[in-house]
Computed example of a mutant assay.
Amino acid sequence: MTCVIDRHPCEDSPWLGAMTLHPEPESVPRARRWFRKFIAPYNLACSVDDCALMISELVTNAILHGRSDGVGVVRVEWFREGASLRVEVHDPGCPADVRLRRPDADDVHGRGLLLVDSLAASWHFGPSRFGGTVVSFVMADAWPA
């Protein structure tokens, strides 16, 4: 199985769902699809397209730079925090390797975190509670007040 989806059974929990993906290129479109499917019932007021794009970029980075050696996994989780949506992408890589790049116009790669930085209300990276790295973003006003 290449994707495992979890949903929290408690309506009052800020944790809305998660998926665990193998570090392979097919996981990027799978993450977009599953996020769209499982976030739909929550009727987000923010752009689901922007969220899916940022998830794509972060999952791609996790696969390319997560140093999983084929053994680790990429985990995506999403939470409600008041009126905001927070999405976390965990991988087995080193937090010190995360950096916002300013690529030249002719560079083919290096725009993932730049996109996240421009679309999200905020973003953060650091050590993951699962070991490795977590990169997260927050979409403000994801739900009407």
Rank of each mutant, 00 (worst) to 15 (best):
M139L: 12
D50I: 04
L85I: 05
G82E: 10
A18R: 10
L21I: 03
A121F: 10
A83W: 00
C51F: 08
D69L: 09
L21E: 08
A120N: 00
V59L: 08
L64A: 13
L114V: 07
R80T: 03
L21K: 07
T60K: 00
W123A: 06
P25Q: 14
V59K: 08
L21V: 09
R75H: 09
S128F: 10
S122A: 15
T133F: 07
G17D: 01
I55W: 12
V138F: 04
F79H: 15
S118D: 10
I55K: 03
E81R: 02
D49E: 09
D117P: 09
A120L: 14
V73K: 11
V87D: 05
E88I: 01
A18Y: 15
L85G: 02
V98K: 00
P127R: 15
R129I: 05
H90K: 14
A96G: 13
A40F: 00
W123Q: 06
P9L: 10
W34I: 10
D106N: 02
R111C: 01
G82T: 01
R36M: 02
T20D: 01
I39P: 00
L58W: 05
W15R: 02
F137N: 02
V116F: 13
D50K: 08
L114R: 11
V74Q: 14
P41E: 08
D106P: 02
R36C: 10
S128N: 13
S13W: 00
F35S: 08
S122M: 04
A31P: 06
